[in-house]
Amino acid sequence: KWEEIAERLREEFNINPEEAREAVEKAGGNEEEARRIVKK
């Protein structure tokens, strides 16, 4: 599940997989929260 979210974030925000994974981890697997983290 987290991998899927990280993949979507990576494609959408054009970030590297590591950044995407970190955002999802910080968000506890919550996609909306992960998006907010990435946008900062």
Rank of each mutant, 00 (worst) to 15 (best):
39 K>S: 13
2 W>H: 06
24 V>K: 00
39 K>A: 14
4 E>A: 15
31 E>S: 04
15 I>T: 05
21 R>T: 07
9 L>F: 02
14 N>C: 08
19 E>D: 11
7 E>M: 15
36 R>K: 11
5 I>G: 01
12 E>S: 05
8 R>N: 05
10 R>H: 05
33 E>I: 10
15 I>H: 02
27 A>S: 08
17 P>S: 12
5 I>L: 13
33 E>V: 12
11 E>T: 14
23 A>N: 01
35 R>Y: 04
1 K>H: 10
19 E>L: 13
31 E>Q: 05
34 A>E: 00
1 K>I: 10
29 G>D: 01
15 I>D: 02
36 R>S: 09
3 E>V: 11
10 R>G: 07
22 E>R: 14
20 A>F: 02
11 E>R: 15
5 I>H: 01
38 V>N: 01
19 E>H: 08
18 E>K: 08
16 N>E: 12
9 L>N: 01
28 G>M: 14
33 E>W: 08
2 W>F: 08
35 R>T: 04
40 K>T: 13
30 N>W: 05
25 E>L: 14
28 G>R: 12
29 G>A: 02
35 R>W: 06
15 I>Y: 01
9 L>M: 05
27 A>K: 00
20 A>W: 03
31 E>T: 04
25 E>S: 11
6 A>S: 07
10 R>Y: 06
1 K>F: 12
39 K>I: 15
32 E>S: 11
15 I>E: 03
38 V>H: 02
4 E>R: 13
11 E>H: 14
5 I>Q: 03
12 E>D: 09
34 A>F: 00
8 R>F: 03
32 E>G: 07
28 G>K: 12
7 E>S: 11
16 N>I: 06
33 E>D: 08
22 E>V: 12
9 L>P: 00
40 K>R: 14
27 A>Q: 02
36 R>V: 08
18 E>A: 08
32 E>Y: 09
24 V>I: 12
34 A>P: 00
21 R>S: 08
3 E>K: 13
35 R>S: 03
22 E>W: 15
3 E>L: 13
35 R>E: 03
32 E>K: 08
29 G>S: 02
28 G>A: 10
27 A>G: 04
13 F>V: 03
4 E>Y: 10
8 R>H: 05
1 K>R: 08
29 G>Q: 02
14 N>G: 15
21 R>F: 12
18 E>L: 11
19 E>G: 04
4 E>D: 11
13 F>E: 03
26 K>G: 05
6 A>K: 04
26 K>M: 13
12 E>L: 10
5 I>R: 02
32 E>C: 09
6 A>M: 14
33 E>M: 11
4 E>I: 13
13 F>R: 02
10 R>E: 06
24 V>W: 04
17 P>I: 15
30 N>V: 09
37 I>G: 03
4 E>V: 09
17 P>Q: 13
27 A>F: 01
30 N>M: 06
5 I>T: 04
21 R>M: 14
18 E>Y: 11
7 E>I: 12
32 E>P: 08
38 V>E: 01
10 R>Q: 10
32 E>R: 10
7 E>T: 13
34 A>M: 02
38 V>I: 15
26 K>N: 09
31 E>G: 03
14 N>P: 05
36 R>N: 13
16 N>P: 14
24 V>L: 10
40 K>L: 15
17 P>G: 12
1 K>W: 12
20 A>L: 03
39 K>G: 11
7 E>K: 14
9 L>D: 01
12 E>N: 03
1 K>G: 11
5 I>C: 02
4 E>Q: 13
38 V>Q: 03
40 K>E: 15
4 E>H: 10
22 E>A: 08
39 K>Q: 15
24 V>M: 06
6 A>F: 07
10 R>I: 13
4 E>T: 08
11 E>A: 15
28 G>L: 13
3 E>S: 13
24 V>C: 05
33 E>H: 09
9 L>V: 04
18 E>G: 08
13 F>A: 04
33 E>Y: 05
7 E>P: 01
35 R>G: 03
16 N>D: 14
3 E>T: 12
5 I>D: 00
16 N>K: 11
36 R>L: 10
35 R>M: 05
35 R>A: 05
24 V>E: 01
